[in-house]
Design a protein around this nucleic acid. Structure first.
Lengths: 203, 203
DNA sequence: AATTACAAACAGAACACTCGGTATGTTTAT
DNA sequence: ATAAACATACCGAGTGTTCTGTTTGTAATT
């Protein structure tokens, strides 16, 4: 693994532990076992690194998950549910970044969400990534509903754009509620919400 | 207004502008027109101030809004909807804190949400406040649904706890989506979601 | 010889916080 | 009535630390 990759991976691990602002350059340098000179050889500034890390470990992963779900088989509900659970439940790249031998602590989306909100507040470009990601997710849900209507699985008298928006915000809300009240697992929240929608929408 | 109140109000205004971590003590001292010594006469530390400000201007306001809605008249839907819109749409104390003459910039809940997430990450006690607030909100929704069932307005075969959780997360999700995609106003999102639920639950 | 990939010392600003002092009340004792 | 004793509210220079970023140096590779 290249030094640059090691810096990014180490930084992301530190983010998950302490949030963005509480990670200093010297923290990164110590944890990645490099020096200041080495760091500035690979990155222009601390900010450059932070944005690159969030893009790589969060947004690229999310968008590729959506892309994967888009091309997968299954009922509309299965497709949407599995995309959500993959993005927010399993969090593969996070697991990869954190559990490579040394650390066994569970990395979950709750931390990621807090990171994102911190990033949004600090960097406009993160806000742009976040908006684009949600447009992508919303479109995916709408397309999947349309597909369900076309296949005769979903009632054809619904407004797919509106239903997609409702499902979308409901799913996102489940995640936030899970941040505030982790005693109910995310999976249960998502499935319970979906049950309710499908009761009203399935043909 | 006492010096202590002025410090807190000024700090909250700065928070809305720059987030928590980017507000330094010297920012506060300049904006509130005090001195370092004056500040430390009133507060033990910067952290003490930050937590006190979030409690006063966010959590106390939210919880009192729920209390007010609990004791108000109207259909279950009206009660729930107006509580949400008061908390997240109008944001009275924020308006009070920011628009007292000098500043006319719109303060909305989007900033508050980002502040809260920042606070949660940094201070355990803020996380506790946040959890308590959401339990309070969830209970209010459940009680209101139960009341609707008792009054014969809502179908009696629904599980009020589950429906409350679904409505709760959907409302919270609307707020988050509004952070990411502000082009659709919060009010429209909330009403659209509620329309959908009421179609399935009203008698 | 030149470029790559780092090392190490350092600069300069910003940070939260301390501390000795001052001015202005407010009791209490004579 | 007056002075002593104390309390409250505030001042602002100064401390030590930490921060990001710069500069210069060096070993290895091409």
């Amino acid at each position: 693994m290249s030094t640059k990759d090691r810096i990014m991976k180490t930084t992301f691990k530190l983010f998950l532990k302490k949030g963005i602002v509480d990670v200093s350059l010297s923290d990164i340098i110590k944890a990645a076992d490099i020096t200041t000179g080495g760091f500035y050889y690979h990155f222009d500034s601390k900010d450059t690194l932070l944005v690159a890390v969030l893009k790589k470990y969060v947004f690229d992963y999310f968008n590729s998950t959506i892309e994967y779900a888009r091309n997968s088989e299954g009922t509309p509900r299965e497709k949407i549910e599995s995309a959500m659970l993959t993005m927010w439940g399993e969090c593969v790249p996070i697991a990869e970044a954190t559990t490579s031998g040394e650390s066994s602590e569970k990395a979950d989306y709750r931390k990621i969400h807090l990171l994102l909100m911190e990033g949004i507040q600090k960097y406009d470009v993160i806000m742009e990534y976040y908006t684009k990601y949600h447009h992508n997710l919303l479109n995916f849900i709408k397309e999947t509903i349309d597909e369900g209507v076309a296949r005769g699985i979903i009632r054809s008298d619904i407004d797919s754009a509106e239903l997609a928006a409702i499902i979308h915000s409901s799913m996102v809300g489940s995640v936030i509620m899970w941040v505030a009240m982790p005693e109910i697992p995310l999976e249960k929240r998502i499935i319970s919400n979906m049950d309710y929608y499908w009761e009203c929408t399935a043909k």
